[in-house]
Design a protein around this nucleic acid. Structure first.
Length: 358
RNA sequence: UGUCCACUCGUAUAUCGGUAUUACACCGGAUUUUGGUUCCGAGAAGCGAGGUUCGACUCCUCGGUGGACAA
């Protein structure tokens, strides 16, 4: 009897091609698309048509019907708002830079997906992520995708072994080009040419600052203009409120210092934003928090640590890991350590764990 | 009121008697399932009025504005 697989479908090329592959492999498929938030983009209003979001949900449904398997649209708006958006707002309002995709993957995509899978009698769950799963010493680990440029393990590091045990990544062995080619072969030429999705899904028009203003009731009271200062505390100018900035930011500072200026530190309490040079952003150490413990003992290990998506992992040693808080010492300084972002710890292709930078 | 100094893209600056530089900001694009970074491209200026000169942002005169000093 074929195994029933619950496939998370966004309406994009990756999840659609995943469906094709799973069907070819003989799985019995059930498609599910999450309704996570409602927003309307200006660009959609301007064209007086349904928004991209609704269109993708419908496209996912149509694709599933076309391929001949059942599809469900599940309303996760409450959980999503509470968990992902809530954390997003809280982090920014504390002067940190959140990583909503990481949280969404672990809490919504997998957290809720497993529950839905159980309800629908599915043994396994699948998504169109570029990642693999590998076993070592009796434990399951995330493993980087064959297409290193598309590897998305950074956003998936919070998945637990229990979640991995029920997961399939149909695209893990493929490159993006191969995925496009498969879509074309199946007649989905338009989908193959579709632009990659990007940006935070619930933030319209790529403007998280407006989102905060619109979704934090007392935003204007809590986020007020304050001082730009340098490392010595000297006042350099006026900023628009700490929550509008992130570590390493150069554009949008609205201040001319005669040389490029970057945000090097954010103090939400004092509403101060420190500016410095590019060199000032290098550090050889960071502290991180682990929300749960992995099956292995990480303390003292030397790993490859990635402090942001699309940056090369750098060799680092894990120290003083106690009570879910640890220290990471890099063998070479890294640029732009940003509190709130994830640090993901690799050993070759395996994801050993990760943490939230403090 | 007198003397001296300054005045250049939105901001901060460079240069030169002959196409006005650079940085930041702004706009567009590339890259990217977070923020940010990076890359490419565009627009954008000589305080005003005269004069000298083939040609003035540059030199001269007057005016304006700002600053310093003097009283």
């Amino acid at each position: 009897m074929p195994k029933r697989v619950l496939l998370a479908m966004s309406g994009g090329i990756d999840s659609t091609v995943s469906a094709m592959l799973l069907l070819e492999q003989g799985y019995e498929l059930v498609g599910v698309t999450f309704r996570t938030y409602d927003s309307i983009k200006e660009s959609c209003l301007a064209r007086e048509k349904g928004c991209c979001l609704v269109e993708s949900i419908m496209e996912a449904k149509h694709n599933a019907e076309k391929m001949g398997f059942e599809h469900h649209i599940v309303d996760f708006r409450d959980t999503f708002r509470q968990c992902v958006i809530g954390n997003f707002i809280e982090e920014y309002m504390s002067g940190r830079t959140p990583n909503p995709c990481v949280l969404c993957n672990s809490h919504i995509k997998w957290g809720e997906l497993v529950r839905v899978a159980d309800e629908l009698g599915c043994d396994l769950i699948a998504t169109g992520h570029y990642a693999r799963i590998r076993e070592r010493d009796g434990h399951l680990y995330l493993s980087t995708a064959a297409d290193t440029h598309k590897d998305q393990t950074y956003f998936l590091w919070m998945l637990t072994e229990d979640q991995l045990r029920r997961t399939i990544f149909p695209l893990g062995e493929l490159t993006k080009d191969q995925v496009r080619e498969i879509a074309r072969q199946h007649g989905y030429t338009k989908l193959a040419e579709k632009k990659e999705s990007q940006e935070i899904c619930f933030v319209t028009d790529n403007d998280y600052r407006s989102f905060l203003r619109a979704n934090v009731s007392d935003f204007d009271q809590r986020v007020r203009p304050g001082n730009y200062i340098d490392a010595t505390g000297k006042v350099l100018g006026t900023h628009q409120g700490f929550a509008n900035y992130t570590i390493g930011q150069r554009k949008g500072l609205g201040i001319a210092l005669g040389q490029p200026a970057y945000v090097t530190h954010i103090d939400a309490e004092r509403n101060e934003v420190t500016l410095g040079s590019n060199d000032d952003l290098y550090s050889s150490e960071l502290r991180f928090r682990v929300p749960f413990s992995r099956p292995n003992e990480l303390n003292g290990q030397t790993v490859m640590a990635r402090i942001r998506y699309r940056s090369l992992p750098v060799e680092a040693t894990i120290n003083d890991l106690t009570n879910g808080v640890g220290r990471l010492s890099f063998s070479a300084p890294v640029w732009g350590v940003t509190p709130g972002q994830s640090v993901v710890l690799y050993q070759n292709d395996l994801v050993l764990g990760g943490g939230i930078i403090l």
